[in-house]
Design a protein around this nucleic acid. Structure first.
Lengths: 132, 132
DNA sequence: GATAATCCTTCCAGTTGCTGGAAGGTCAAG
DNA sequence: CTTGACCTTCCAGCAACTGGAAGGATTATC
């Protein structure tokens, strides 16, 4: 499929897909006319990139995560170790998102009577402030 | 407190804190010697910025979220509406992180016998591919 | 078959969000 | 009173896109 279709299916703009190719994240086949040609596997990888980028992982982290699956030469123990670190990181991110969510929910609940609390950011974040 | 202390307490590098001031996200008081002077409220806001940035929210989104609390002139109904949109977005992010987590857990579990599955990215992400 | 619209290509410049380093002022410890 | 760890501003560079120009390919319409 062409880049436009891959873009629709993955949620990434064509510009970004070309950029990812440029930096070696995902190389595409070429059709006879010079157009990039994407498979469904490519689309899944692009979708994976779209997701993990939007969740705050760097391009280098995404490259590492993609290579966990793609690199046949890599030791399984190695893969396992890296994956475990990332799972811990994801758990932390989930906890932080839950905390942000609670903070906003609190704001929503206390907006009913047109009386906004003065500083819920302090209440909402005091629990995990002062971390390294 | 000085910027170094605020940096430690918030988890943001001093450079980043100065940058946020430059773009008008958070203005600090100045001590007699010209040093920036931060209150605990400032630290909470910085910590909030550190968090939401690392979770994939843009600086403009963070500015909007901060203003939900800070802007006294804003209608409460307005604040509530924006907060609700953001809560929905956070829920989506949590679900996506959970899905990434499952994907990596699956990889970890199937690494024991040095037999790595060929393409778990497809299994792990097929559920939510093909979204606009 | 010509033409127009809509793709696709590359290339280069601009934006966002930091990040490093230089040059110099301030402050607390010995 | 000097040494070292702060702080200041300014300017340059990097990461990760994003927009636009110039031109070729494909598809749709006349």
């Amino acid at each position: 499929m062409n880049i436009g279709t891959a873009s629709e299916k993955s949620g990434l703009p064509p510009k970004t897909i070309r950029y990812y190719e440029e930096i070696g994240l995902l190389k595409a086949d070429r059709a006879g006319n010079g157009y990039r040609d994407y498979s469904m596997t490519d689309v899944h990888r692009l979708r994976f990139l779209q997701r993990s980028r939007s969740l705050g992982f760097s391009v280098e982290e995404c490259r590492q995560l993609l290579s966990l699956y793609g690199d046949k030469k890599r030791e399984s123990a190695d893969v396992k170790a890296i994956a475990q670190i990332k799972v811990a990181e994801i758990d932390r991110k989930i906890a932080e998102l839950a905390s942000l969510r609670d903070m906003l929910s609190h704001l929503i609940d206390h907006c009913n009577g047109d009386e906004r609390p003065d500083c819920p950011i302090i209440d909402g974040l005091a629990g995990s402030a002062t971390v390294q």
